Computed example of a mutant assay.
Amino acid sequence: MFTESNAYFTVPHQFNVYLESWPESKGIPTEADLRSMQSVGLKLLSEVKELEASCLLQLRGLDNDAKAVVDFLKLQSRKVDLVLHHVLEKEVQTGDKFLGSHFGGSGISLTSKTALNVGDYFKTSIYISSELVAILCLCQVTQCQRIENESQTGSYNISLEFSQILDADVEQLVKASLNVQQKMLKMRKQSRQQSVE
């Protein structure tokens, strides 16, 4: 369970989330249980991501002559990730589909037409296509607020906190949130420059 001291920031971003009710009587799954629940495609993507991270870390120690090799390997790695992510998105998903609105290393937020009970647990599949992130974790609803604006009347903003998630998946989410934040800052800077001109 995450505490306030190890909370991460979240970024606004749209993504797909699938929630499947998880009875409290089952208890929190161990990391091994979580790994065994992953589909073959998800296991494969996780393995590839871990191998990439390890290899790229070793290559960073090489001198500038290796930069072209590192860039080429990053490109190859991205191609593999794209294919695996595409295959994963085509898999039959279990649970109800929701539109995610924010994500980070501690949890996610989503929009729902129905309220969810605070304290309920869900087996959660998260797919952030633009960042090539696909993970399976266990989440708990921490907040459910009715949206009061006219365009989304009858909808709810729901916050979920990770109850069990693999360390490598937290790392992926943190990197993806930093990447999204950088893109947002770059877009803001460009729009400011255009408004000055």
Rank of each mutant, 00 (worst) to 15 (best):
A176I: 01
T30I: 12
E50G: 01
C137E: 02
K183P: 03
K189G: 10
S191H: 09
L59S: 05
E20R: 02
E150R: 09
I108N: 02
Q76D: 14
L136P: 14
V87P: 08
T114I: 10
L59G: 05
L138C: 08
L62N: 07
S25K: 07
S25P: 03
L136E: 10
D120V: 03
G41W: 03
L57F: 01
D65F: 09
L116E: 00
E20H: 01
M1S: 13
S177A: 04
E24L: 15
N16H: 09
L185H: 06
F98R: 10
S109P: 05
V40A: 13
G119P: 04
Q140S: 09
I135W: 04
E150V: 11
I147H: 10
L160T: 07
I158Q: 04
N149S: 15
T124M: 00
N6K: 14
V133D: 03
S106P: 03
A53K: 10
D120L: 02
L19G: 12
K183F: 00
A32Q: 08
L56A: 02
V174P: 12
W22K: 01
G104D: 10
D65V: 14
V11L: 01
S5E: 11
E161Q: 10
T153C: 01
H102G: 03
V170D: 06
K123I: 12
G61S: 09
I147P: 12
A32I: 08
Q194S: 10
L82W: 08
L178F: 03
V92E: 15
F98Y: 15
L57C: 00
G27H: 01
I135F: 11
E52W: 06
S106D: 00
E31I: 08
S21H: 14
T114D: 05
E24F: 05
A68D: 13
A66K: 13
V69W: 07
S151L: 07
H85W: 06
V17G: 02
K113H: 01
E161N: 08
L132H: 15
L75V: 13
P29H: 11
Y8V: 01
T10S: 14
S155G: 13
I126N: 00
L75M: 15
D65H: 10
Y127F: 10
L42F: 00
S46D: 06
S130K: 07
L73P: 12
H86W: 04
L19D: 01
M184D: 03
F72T: 07
C139H: 00
T111I: 08
H85R: 05
K113A: 06
H85A: 03
